[in-house]
């Protein structure tokens, strides 16, 4: 199939970028989207051009490093799908495809489609953990955790940290990312004791990184490859407010 691409090119963080057109006359519908970009890059290198930088690693939808804004949507048109799992069979012969980086002021562009998401790491550093020491933990079965609780906690913990929630949010809010972690740990008895404090610290860091606020539009849960529910944002708010109300 024949594909026309319009891709964001930007030399470095400070340079001004622009959309550039590329044609690929011979795309196999079984290719993944990133394999299609591989093919384009190989072509660019051979013709002496600068290949397009884009983030990716595992290519099986779990590492969270890939993340492109494809045809106006985070990770493209399919639901519950990362960019690397998107396949060309979902496009039509002759399509024009727009490819842009995830945009937010907290996600500066490094080059072309590659962005810096270290803000997410810093949010986790602010409190996205259970303060336990390695090496000496109590017997795993000492605290039973209900089947459903474990499943619910997993749903929140499944976040891959790709940033699609921020990219699609009209406020560039990281509430779903932060809420998923707060909620995951708040649901488990091991994480519950420091939960309000955790919520408070992580929210403060989210704010400091320059993410916007949440207006509960729900766009994030639609674009989330792991389909994490915005209910976890509500739980984060609950934990946060609990801290505010109960703090001594």
């Amino acid at each position: 199939m024949k594909i026309q691409l319009k891709i964001w090119r930007q030399e470095n963080a400070k340079a001004k970028g622009k959309m550039v057109d590329y044609d690929l006359p011979d795309v196999n519908p079984e290719m993944s989207f990133l394999e299609m970009l591989d093919v384009l890059n190989e072509k660019l290198i051979r013709s002496g051009d600068d290949p397009i930088e884009f983030d990716h690693d595992c290519r099986e939808g779990i590492c969270g490093q890939c993340g492109l804004f494809i045809n106006g949507r985070a990770h493209g048109p399919m639901s519950a799908t990362t960019t690397c799992q998107l396949h060309m069979r979902h496009f039509e012969d002759g399509d024009t495809i727009y490819v842009e980086p995830f945009r937010a002021s907290a996600f500066p562009v490094v080059k072309d489609l590659r962005i810096d998401r270290s803000a997410f790491d810093r949010i986790i550093q602010a409190g996205g953990f259970i303060s336990t020491r390695t090496g000496d933990a109590p017997e795993a079965n000492a605290i039973p955790i209900g089947h459903q609780t474990a499943e619910d906690a997993f749903d929140a913990a499944a976040c891959i940290g790709c940033g699609a929630c921020v990219a699609t949010c009209k406020n560039a809010s990281a509430a779903l990312f932060t809420g998923a972690k707060v909620s995951h740990l708040a649901m488990l008895p091991q994480g519950e004791p420091e939960s309000p404090e955790r919520a408070e610290k992580m929210v403060a860091q989210m704010e400091a990184e320059g993410f916007g606020h949440c207006t509960n539009t729900g766009a994030c849960e639609v674009e989330c490859p792991q389909e994490i529910s915005i209910e976890h944002i509500a739980r984060m708010n609950f934990e946060y407010n609990k801290a505010a109300v109960l703090e001594k």
């Binding site: 259970i130 795993a140 039973p144 955790i145 474990a150 906690a153 740990l185 994480g191």
Partner: peptide, 22 residues
């Protein structure tokens, strides 16, 4: 065996039976 204890303490949501055990 220690590893499972460690991971549970860190909040790893391993699959559980209905009685709440791993």
């Amino acid at each position: 065996a220690n590893l499972i204890d460690q991971a549970v303490a860190q909040g790893v949501p391993f699959a559980r039976e209905y009685g709440g055990y791993l």
